Simulated assay, not measured.
Amino acid sequence: MEKVCIIAEAGVNHNGDIIIAKKMVDVAKKAGVDYIKFQTFVPEKLVSRYAEKAEYQKETTDATESQLDMLRKLSLSEDEFVSLRNYCDEVGIGFISTPFDLESIDFLEKMDMDFWKIPSGEITNLPYLEKIAGTGRKVILSTGMSDIQEIEDAVKVLENNGVPEIVLLHCNTQYPTPFEDVNLSAMETIARETNKEVGYSDHTKGIEAPIAAVAMGATVIEKHFTLDKNMEGPDHKASIEPDELTQMVRAIRHIEKAIGNGIKEPTASEISNKSIARKSIVAACKIAKGDIFSEKNITTKRPGNGISPMKWYEVIGKTATRDFIEDELIEI
């Protein structure tokens, strides 16, 4: 199995503060993730003045302000994103930002990112998908709120317009996602129906779901994180803190190793225990040369470096060629 790509989703958890954003870069690097991801948008290009907030946003921010006003406070300037990209390069961590409007696609294309990360909300945005596809870069596409037909339609648009490689992330767009709605088995459905590589973008509380997703075959994991869940902002409550991010990365790397190659055979680490844990055919009592081996004078005991008990009936009825003392390994 190839190494799982772990994306630490900073999103807008910097609260529009470049200093906090850079602290998040440091945290992500220390945790050992592959990429840190932000969100790039021009608020006026993303939402109309009439757009309401989601319920979870109303619960975690000023309920009297509009979604547009909220996003204005959470956005970073182009110069700040350039600074962030440069800082990621200095620190040695991959930089990714998701564009939420056509203007931001043009800006981020200049950043020469390794791939595009398309959010769930844009999966039915045809002009957006076509513009992304026109850059010819690899795409990782989240599929929250989608059914298989919508996923297949988006994949077709991307492929028909030049995308060379697509990874599909199963996702539930509720913050936080109730565990009964996670439905990790949908990853298998997406993989089977689209013949694409799959991963998982997680919005649950905690780190169990993404770890389980890796065990089920996810090759990309995306997880929101924050410096402090108690900070003001829409996504902090559904994010994990630095220690949890570190624990998640460690667990995923362990699971990667644990999945293995699927071949059932003794491993190098356990081979030395084989003779200790298994049994051999031994003398149950004193046996004289010429005696006939029977269920009365032989038995099975550790260690397993003698005749295997699987040859029990090959030994029964044979004649002892020498004397044996109790517990001695039988030879024939």
Rank of each mutant, 00 (worst) to 15 (best):
S272I: 09
V182N: 09
I18C: 08
V25N: 11
T177Q: 01
T60L: 00
T98S: 14
F115G: 13
E241K: 01
S294R: 06
D26E: 12
T173M: 08
D243C: 00
K23D: 12
Q247P: 04
N195F: 08
V42G: 08
V282P: 05
G199R: 06
P178Q: 05
G260R: 04
C88A: 15
E270N: 11
E122C: 01
M248H: 09
F225W: 13
I325E: 15
H170Q: 15
A54T: 05
N15I: 01
T61A: 02
A28L: 07
R192E: 13
L227T: 12
K229W: 00
A283N: 07
C285G: 14
R322W: 01
A283K: 10
E59M: 07
D153Y: 10
A288D: 12
G121M: 04
E208Y: 13
V214L: 10
S97L: 00
I259S: 02
A212L: 15
M1E: 06
G134S: 15
L84P: 04
I20L: 14
P99Y: 02
L108V: 07
D17Y: 00
Y50W: 12
D153W: 05
L169A: 12
H203T: 07
A215I: 01
K23R: 15
T267P: 10
A31K: 12
A21S: 06
A283H: 06
I240Y: 03
G304L: 02
W116I: 07
T124M: 09
I140R: 12
V249T: 14
L71R: 13
K156V: 06
I263D: 10
K73P: 03
M1Q: 06
A218C: 06
E197Y: 09
E241L: 02
T219M: 08
E9A: 06
E78P: 05
E150P: 04
E130A: 02
A320L: 06
I166P: 08
I118L: 09
K223F: 03
S97Q: 02
M111V: 05
D327K: 10
I298Y: 04
M145Y: 10
D62E: 07
G290V: 09
K22Q: 09
